[in-house]
């Protein structure tokens, strides 16, 4: 088919107008219109539904199919960043926690609007001004009850209590924020890593008693704790390492601050793991333990069987994978038992 110049100009004009319409439509902030446009212009890519319903600790919540403006409150910030999320607003994490994030996550953290220094004092006015289309929250139940109505009035709010296990929590965050693809890749990496650790160190792990001890910035001076929750819990439950745990129905061992004079009781364990930073040095709070004569006199320490392990976090797959990598290196360095 041939076209004369006038007709060609008309087609070009129509194409330009059509393109401009698509561009203007895409630039608008009305989710419904953009979804409609996307649905009309795409015939192959899967299309997110207009809305979805997710189940959480605050019931069944109807949320946007593909939320674009997500605000995170409390413990949801880090898992959301970990699956590639770009929060528009968040409650602050401690400087030391942020420093442990990969650079790209730190950049996304810094780009978000800070809604509060801690999760229990969210600036509702500031949050509302951000016009979020989804709010993710994990804070103590009592605190959430106080602000639930205000949050729901701003945007659909999905809430999980603090007792949610980390893996279902990561699943739920990814499902709500429509980031399941990124999560799937992480889950595959996690399964592979666990399998490798179990296979490589089976002989080392079997019959060896481990204990993970720690100190945090909030620890009272002169005290440490047996860390049976957090990263070592993953090593125990997933890798099968023999770490101590609290009796059924009891508080975690980590909740009890033990005086330094009980460091001597660690003599009964074959291997001790303790927290180190990314460079492999004992974390600042834990340095006080390493400096004691009692620590230096422990059989495991003298035999080189005290292993520094880096644990940047334990409520999403990214930091857990970093922990498992560090555990892998630590176990590889373990001298043979005499």
């Amino acid at each position: 088919m041939t076209m004369n110049p006038l007709r060609r100009r008309g087609v070009a004009l129509a194409a330009t107008l059509l393109s401009a319409t698509f561009v203007l439509t895409a630039c608008g902030d009305d989710g419904e219109d953009s979804e409609s446009a996307a649905a009309k212009t795409s015939t192959t890519a899967p299309v997110a539904p207009k809305t979805r319903t997710v189940k959480a600790d605050n019931g069944s919540i109807e949320i946007p199919g593909d939320p674009q403006r997500v605000a995170t409150i409390g413990n949801t910030t880090l898992p959301f960043l970990d699956v590639g999320g770009e929060p528009i607003g968040l409650t602050a994490e401690s400087d030391s926690t942020v420093a442990l994030l990969p650079e790209d996550q730190q950049a996304r953290y810094a780009a978000a609007t800070n809604l509060a220094p801690s999760a229990d004092e969210v600036d509702m006015e500031k949050l509302a001004s951000l016009k979020p289309d989804l709010i993710l929250a994990q804070i103590p139940d009592a605190e959430f009850e106080k602000i639930e109505e205000q949050l729901q009035a701003i945007a659909p709010t999905v809430f999980w209590g603090l007792d949610t296990e980390w893996k279902p929590f990561a699943d739920a965050i990814a499902e709500a924020s429509n980031t399941t693809d990124a999560l799937s890749a992480q889950k595959t990496g996690f399964a592979d890593k666990i399998a490798k650790l179990q296979e490589t160190y089976r002989e080392t792990i079997d019959g060896t008693s481990f204990v993970d001890i720690s100190r945090w910035e909030s620890s009272d001076p002169g005290t440490f704790a047996i860390a049976d929750i957090g990263c070592s819990e993953i090593a125990r439950d997933e890798v099968g390492m023999d770490f101590p745990e609290a009796a059924e129905g009891e508080d975690p061992l980590a909740y009890t601050a033990l005086p330094f004079e009980q460091l001597g009781d660690l003599s009964k364990y074959d291997v001790i793991t303790y927290p180190v930073d990314a460079e492999g040095q004992p974390t600042e709070p834990f340095a006080a333990v390493v400096e004691t004569n009692t620590w230096k006199a422990l059989p495991a320490v003298k035999a080189g069987r005290a292993l520094g392990v880096f644990c940047p976090g334990n409520n999403s797959y990214g930091p857990v994978l970093q922990y498992l990598d560090s555990l892998d290196r630590a176990l590889a360095s373990l001298p043979a038992e005499e």
């Binding site: 002169g222 005086p259 330094f260 004079e261 460091l263 001597g264 003599s267 004691t292 004569n293 009692t294 006199a297 422990l298």
Partner: peptide, 13 residues
């Protein structure tokens, strides 16, 4: 001496 319990006495108690 360098006994662990002795360190507990001298360093902490």
């Amino acid at each position: 001496s360098s006994d662990i319990d002795q360190f507990s006495i001298r360093d902490f108690r």
